[in-house]
């Protein structure tokens, strides 16, 4: 834990209270209670199908939930589409499969939302986009199309694109899972730099090294429930629950940590 995050103001960025979600009869999220403070970095891990992605996709309402409430930056997520758009403007998201727009250049990908949602003049939006591309260390690719870049480069563009809206919160949904191993580091480095700048982040990942190094708290989910929440050191060195121990032993066997 870095000192800055302890000092970070205690205002709540995201508040889950008793959230339940069903897909048909499948109970995907069970009674989720979680408060994320501003500037806090949360890593969510757990076996596949445990509801990690569903959890963060509820934050910008790519998924609806049936019971409980989620308040993001003081705005409660309801069916009201204007509020949802309001929240989405301030919450950036990075996907496993990048989801860049293949018909637009890298620069256009990053300038699109500021121009059309923030009503920024095109030139200003492109300046900001260039700054962000420099920040993720690929300004020289700005006029290429996403299909011409490597996976790692595409994911860094996706991070720049999410940052283009100047979000208060960033959500990462398994950002390195679709990457070749040699490209994982460049993306994780970008995310680490972002964390050091004080961004509020929720990261779903299997990269336990990243969790240990960057997270303020690690959330372990299984079967739609939050099983254990703890700071990284006690979480990895002294897990409390059997399911956590089982999960950690399984990934340690493959030497991921």
């Amino acid at each position: 834990m870095t000192p800055s995050s302890i000092e970070a103001n205690n205002s709540v960025a995201i508040d889950f209270v008793g959230v339940h979600k069903w897909y048909g009869s499948f109970h995907a999220l069970r009674n989720i209670n979680l408060s994320v403070r501003c500037g806090e970095r949360i890593v969510v891990c757990g076996p596949s199908g445990s509801g990690k992605s569903t959890l963060i996709r509820c934050v910008n309402r790519l998924e609806e939930y049936q019971r409980g409430s989620i308040v993001v930056d003081g705005v409660e997520l309801t069916r009201d589409i204007r509020r949802i758009d309001e929240v989405r403007r301030d919450v950036g998201m990075v996907f496993q499969s990048f989801n860049l727009f293949p018909h637009l250049t890298v620069l256009e990908n990053c300038a699109l939302a500021p121009i059309w949602v923030r009503k920024m003049p095109r030139r200003d939006a492109e300046d900001v986009a260039m700054q962000l591309l420099t920040r993720v260390k690929i300004p020289e690719q700005s006029s290429k199309y996403p299909g011409q870049l490597s996976g790692g480069q595409q994911q860094r563009v996706a991070i720049a694109r999410a940052l283009s809206m100047n979000p208060k919160i960033m959500l990462f949904d398994e950002p390195t899972s679709a990457l070749d191993p040699e490209m994982v580091k460049e993306v994780l480095d970008t995310m680490t730099a972002l964390a050091q700048d004080g961004m509020t982040m929720i990261v779903v990942t299997h990269e336990m090294g990243f969790a240990r190094q960057v997270a303020d708290r690690v959330v372990f989910m299984d079967d739609g429930e939050i099983v254990e929440i703890n700071a990284p050191e006690p979480f990895f060195d002294n897990p409390q629950h059997d399911r956590t121990k089982l999960f950690l032993s399984q990934i340690i066997r493959f030497g991921v940590v």
């Binding site: 790519l62 998201m93 996907f95 990048f98 989801n99 727009f101």
Partner: peptide, 18 residues
Amino acid sequence: LGRGQYEGALALGLNSPR
């Protein structure tokens, strides 16, 4: 068109017509 394109656009705060 994959669902990812819709989600990518929505997550940026683009409304439906845009």
